[in-house]
């Protein structure tokens, strides 16, 4: 029961879009190997918060530390953090002009300066890991949504990150493809990866989460282990939110 030091730590983080305050006094820590699921109503700031972790958004106040690096304006620091933090987007964002294998190897080759053969071996390993080794030479537009999202997961894994961020990875998928993506995420969780997932897939949350974070109107309203969060949420807002999404 020794408490490992947090690998991600946000202290008193505020974030504005113009005059609009999107995040207010966010305090949030993730330990190595921990799996955190973030949920909350639309517009509550979930995406904004996890995008601050790899600085796709700049925070305006407070501090963010990732794997010992304090995020600021230093480009080298930002790129170092991004190499250690993989991110999977709702819209996949695969590179449409590159084949699947090239999508996977471009990071290792250009950023990690790996040679092509080693990068391709790595790429094929992670394509295997997400169960689509046969798609290596296709272009993203030739794959189904579920396959594209698994390629996106593999692309992030090819950078051998310490942390994986997921921003509603199944929201853009047809229902029949959701489970194949969730399955890949569960397997990743079982391999011990540190994960922060924004998702409304509560079945997934129950299976893998160590910690649930509930946000509303730019604030973290509640943080609790999943057992507690699902059976006895402390805040009324969280209870209402759960009632709403579990109805479906």
């Amino acid at each position: 029961m020794t408490a490992a030091p947090p690998i991600i730590e946000l202290c008193h983080v505020d974030k504005y879009f113009g005059p609009f305050q999107a995040l207010t006094d966010i305090n949030f820590a993730v330990r190595q190997g921990e799996r955190v699921v973030v949920c909350g109503p639309s517009g509550s700031g979930k995406s904004t918060m996890i995008r601050c972790i790899n600085r796709l958004e700049e925070h305006d106040a407070g501090t963010i530390t990732v794997d010992g690096i304090l995020l600021g304006d230093d480009t080298k620091d930002i790129r170092a953090v991004r190499q250690d933090v993989g991110m999977v987007f709702q819209q996949f964002n695969l590179f449409p002009h590159l084949t699947v294998l090239e999508n996977l190897t471009i990071g290792p080759i250009r950023v990690r300066k790996m040679d092509k053969a080693a990068a391709e071996a790595l790429g094929r390993k992670y394509l295997d890991r997400v169960h689509i080794p046969e798609q290596a030479d296709k272009f993203p537009s030739q794959l189904s949504g579920g396959q594209q999202q698994r390629v996106a997961i593999a692309r992030s894994l090819c950078m051998e990150p310490k942390i994986m961020l997921f921003d509603e990875p199944t929201s853009a998928l047809d229902p029949e493809m959701i489970s194949e993506v969730l399955e890949a995420m569960v397997e990743l969780a079982n391999s011990g990866m540190t994960m922060v997932c924004v998702t409304h897939e509560m079945g997934f949350a129950r299976r893998v989460a160590d910690k649930m974070v509930f946000m509303e109107a730019g604030r973290i309203v509640e943080t609790a282990p999943p057992g507690e969060f699902f059976t006895a949420p402390k805040s009324d807002r969280a209870r209402m939110f759960l009632d709403q999404i579990l109805e479906h």
Binding site: L56, M87, Q91, N93, L94, I106, S156
Partner: peptide, 23 residues
């Protein structure tokens, strides 16, 4: 070019010059 291309390329750690050139 869609903004998501920038975000995906940044999140694998590419520099601005690399993002322009390769993506």
């Amino acid at each position: 070019v869609a903004l998501g291309q920038w975000e995906a390329a940044k999140s694998v750690g590419m520099s601005t010059a690399q993002i322009y050139r390769y993506i």
